[in-house]
Amino acid sequence: MTITSDAPGRVRTVVADPTRSAAWRSPLVAPLALAGAALLGALVVRVVDPNVAGHYPVCLSLTLTGTYCPFCGGLRAVHDLMLGNVAGAFGMNPLVVLGLPFLGLAWWRWMRRAARGARVIARTPTWPAWVTFGVIAAFWVARNIPALQGWLAP
């Protein structure tokens, strides 16, 4: 009876292990998948023009309160960037244009850690988060000030 009981157990573990412990379990899967998804999204935004009304949902903040949120114009900025128009993108949303390099840097650090086999997120001090919040909040307020909307509003 031990033979019959061991057999199914071994068969199942043998079937389950290779699929999990192979390439799909590599720490590189998550950052690469995220990068692929981001690239796919950017391509969609390039093809489907966000300057045309109705192509994307309207920002909820703009609809309900009439004020620009920090990311209003972000899709148009990405659209311009994908067309190589950095100045146009900056005019739509300078925060997104200036923030993308930081996102890329964070992603690169993630890849380097993953390449060394680390799965856990790198420990960071808390101040970058607060600085990010301060920048976003300041930009949020500033782009809704009428005198500054010529530069900061989409």
């Binding site: 920002c59 909820l60 903040s61 949120c69 920090p70 990311f71 997120i121 420990r123 960071t124 001090p125 808390t126 970058p128 988060a129 607060w130 990010t132 919040f133 976003i136």
Partner: peptide
């Protein structure tokens, strides 16, 4: 840093959808 980033991103995503 995890908690701080979570709070900041939560606030931003809450107000910006």
């Amino acid at each position: 840093g995890l908690g701080t980033w979570s709070l900041v991103l939560g606030i931003v995503s809450f107000f910006c959808g």
